[in-house]
Design a protein around this nucleic acid. Structure first.
Length: 120
DNA sequence: CCAATGACCGTAA
DNA sequence: GTTACGGCCATTG
């Protein structure tokens, strides 16, 4: 297949974030092999439609906070995370040291690469 | 092609 | 703790 589009890479990585864990936009960009493209990651997630299988709510900013301008979407994200056991304080902030899944995703990608990647 | 926009990030004060 | 700035770059007009 062709080189995955940036979007597809982003969605692929986000899909690897385990339930109950989170990852920063920058972290997703790094695991896509595109460090520094955090903004583009946000743009990609912004494009997702309702009902997508991509767990977009597990992506927050490096400050550990929900970073969605739209209040409704932000509330939905807070709800989703709480359901999964992610604790958020009154400022919608969470402890990244505790929930960051970047290393987990890194290991998954590393193993996948070792076993050889074939069509989804 | 150029300019503006944005669910970002790191650093500095 | 806060605000400000420069840098980042995919997408859109």
């Amino acid at each position: 297949m062709q080189i995955p589009s940036f979007y597809e890479q982003v969605y692929e990585v986000v899909r690897l974030i385990p339930k109950g864990r989170v990852m920063s936009y920058g972290g997703v960009a790094r695991q896509c092999g595109r460090p520094g493209r955090a903004r583009a990651v946000g743009y990609a997630l912004h494009m997702l439609q309702a009902g997508t299988r991509v767990p977009w709510w597990r992506v927050i900013n490096s400050y550990g906070r929900i970073s969605i301008p739209d209040p409704e979407a932000a509330e939905l994200q807070r709800q989703k995370l709480t359901e999964e056991g992610v604790v958020l304080d009154e400022h919608l902030r969470t402890d990244m040291r505790k929930y960051d899944a970047e290393m987990v995703v890194y290991e998954k990608l590393r193993r996948r690469r070792r076993e050889g990647v074939r069509g989804s």
